[in-house]
Amino acid sequence: MKRLHSRHWVFLGLLVVITAAMLLRVPMQLRTSPETQRMFDYLDQLPEGSVILVSFDHEASSLPEIRPIAEALLRHAFERDHKLIGMALLAEGTVIGYRLMEQVAEEYAREYGEDYVYLGFKPQFIAAILSMGESIPATFPEDYLGSPYATLPLAQKVSSYDDVAGVLSITDGSLTTHWIEYGGARYNLRVMAGVTAAMVTTYDPYVSSGQMHAMIGGLRGAAEYEQLIDVGGGGLRGMLAQSTAHLYILLLVIIGNVLYWREKKNKAGKR
């Protein structure tokens, strides 16, 4: 125990706080934020059968946070009978996106090729976004499974951004910026996003300027969305632990500052 430093105690505290909250599993009623409501309203009011491009622009590292966001949005979209075209601008998002779409589609008995397709990955996001603006079939001659684009019934109806209601970018970084700036500004593509909490403030100016139509952020955003669609998921399950962790961090900040001021006072007293 002699080798434990103060940081180890801080770590241990966090582990205990989160584990305890997860074992308790108390259901929480959340206040829906206006931004989550806006995303829900958009997907809900879109005419049935609308085609939405879903881009998995994230890495595996953020999967625990991204999965509940993506699942909630995909569930709502499939439930509303929208048609989804999946793709990825980051290599790691490729397999995750494919798997998520496949799993959620199965829940709603949606069929590959008719109700959704998965195009896979293209590198160099700016070039990929611009290239899709010119021609989606030319950018993705084949889907992720190796079927030619023209043989997929849903894909046959979509040749450029004009044929989709918008793009839903699921991201843990700044890739949505490129959808907004290259897809939106150049080809009038409507952009929506599900982003990790850390990226929320990065996109605020785009939401405010209307360049991004709607956005949900973080596990909390996912939980609010799950509440709206009335399907429980990782978001709602993690909310008590999330709340408790925030309070633990606040406590650490307070203790840290009290110690700092006490030390400062002591030093001033000695002088």
Binding site: P64, A197, A198, T201, G218, G234, Q242, A245, H246
Partner: peptide
């Protein structure tokens, strides 16, 4: 928001 994000990732792994 970053604190929130990091906690979410850890909560996911703990789950």
């Amino acid at each position: 928001y970053t604190v929130m994000s990091r906690m979410s990732t850890f909560i996911g792994r703990m789950e």
